[in-house]
Amino acid sequence: MSESCEKDLSPTALILKFTDLESVPSEANLNKIFSCYGPLTEVLRKSSRATVVFRRRSDAETAFSSTGKYSTFGPSLVSYRLKFLPPTPSIASPSPNATKRGRKPATSLEGNAAN
């Protein structure tokens, strides 16, 4: 598998920071809003943040690009960022160099919401 294909198959989290807990959309609403960009693996709400994990990196990048453009969340969205997670190892073809502790660190990309 090529490196670019592997990167696209990496789970990627879109992390949204809101002004307060009350302004964070429900998990059901977040799922409805972001599932149109591609398959999700997880949607979480915690304090004033929401995390939406996409199965594919390209889907998360598309959602990231759209988040600030359309002001879906209004002025309550303070900032948002992508967190690139380490690729999930395939059960069918494990890497010969893979170890349980040898995970690659996550990286991120940030954006600020326009008011």
Rank of each mutant, 00 (worst) to 15 (best):
Met1His: 14
Met1Arg: 14
Met1Trp: 12
Ser2Arg: 10
Ser2Asn: 13
Glu3Tyr: 15
Glu3Ser: 11
Glu3Thr: 12
Glu3Cys: 03
Ser4Tyr: 14
Ser4Cys: 13
Cys5Gln: 15
Glu6Arg: 12
Asp8Gln: 09
Leu9Cys: 09
Pro11Lys: 13
Thr12Leu: 02
Thr12Ala: 07
Ala13Trp: 00
Ala13Cys: 06
Leu14Phe: 02
Ile15Cys: 10
Ile15Asn: 03
Ile15Arg: 10
Leu16Asn: 03
Leu16Ser: 04
Leu16Cys: 06
Leu16Val: 09
Asp20Cys: 02
Asp20Ala: 09
Ser23Arg: 09
Val24Glu: 04
Pro25Gln: 13
Ala28Val: 00
Asn29Met: 10
Asn29Glu: 10
Leu30Tyr: 05
Leu30Trp: 05
Leu30Met: 01
Leu30Thr: 04
Lys32Phe: 07
Ile33Met: 07
Ile33Gln: 06
Ile33Asn: 05
Phe34Ala: 05
Phe34Ser: 01
Phe34His: 04
Ser35Arg: 02
Ser35Glu: 08
Cys36Gln: 14
Tyr37Glu: 03
Gly38Ser: 06
Gly38Val: 01
Gly38Glu: 02
Pro39Asn: 14
Glu42Trp: 10
Arg45Glu: 04
Lys46Tyr: 12
Ser48His: 14
Ser48Ala: 09
Arg49Trp: 00
Arg49Tyr: 01
Arg49Asp: 06
Ala50Glu: 03
Thr51Asp: 01
Thr51Phe: 11
Val52His: 06
Val52Gln: 06
Phe54Ile: 07
Phe54Ala: 07
Arg55Phe: 11
Arg56Glu: 07
Arg56Val: 07
Arg56Thr: 06
Arg57Phe: 01
Ser58Trp: 05
Ser58Asn: 08
Ser58Leu: 00
Ser58Lys: 07
Asp59Thr: 03
Asp59Val: 00
Asp59Phe: 03
Ala60Ser: 04
Ala60Asn: 01
Glu61Thr: 08
Thr62Pro: 00
Thr62Cys: 08
Ser65His: 09
Ser65Trp: 05
Ser65Leu: 14
Ser66Gln: 13
Ser66His: 11
Thr67Gln: 05
Gly68Phe: 05
Ser71Val: 06
Thr72Gly: 08
Thr72Ser: 11
Phe73His: 04
Phe73Val: 01
Gly74Leu: 02
Pro75Arg: 13
Ser76Asn: 11
Ser76Pro: 10
Ser76Leu: 03
Leu77Val: 05
Leu77Asn: 02
Leu77Asp: 01
Val78Phe: 13
Tyr80Gly: 04
Tyr80Ser: 05
Arg81Tyr: 01
Leu82Trp: 05
Lys83Gly: 00
Lys83Ile: 07
Lys83Pro: 00
Lys83Glu: 15
Phe84Met: 02
Phe84Glu: 00
Pro87Ser: 12
Thr88Gly: 06
Thr88Trp: 12
Pro89Ile: 05
Pro89Gln: 02
Pro89Glu: 09
Ser90Tyr: 08
Ile91Met: 14
Ile91Trp: 09
Ile91Thr: 15
Ala92Gly: 11
Pro94Cys: 08
Pro94His: 09
Ser95Gln: 10
Asn97Asp: 15
Ala98Val: 13
Ala98Glu: 13
Lys100Tyr: 01
Lys100Ala: 15
Gly102Ala: 15
Gly102Cys: 14
Arg103Glu: 12
Lys104Gln: 11
Ala106Tyr: 07
Ala106Pro: 00
Ala106Lys: 01
Thr107Leu: 03
Thr107Ser: 14
Ser108Arg: 05
Leu109Phe: 11
Glu110Val: 14
Gly111Leu: 11
Gly111Ser: 15
Ala114Asp: 10
Ala114Trp: 00
Ala114Gly: 12
Ala114Tyr: 00
Asn115Arg: 15
Asn115Ala: 12
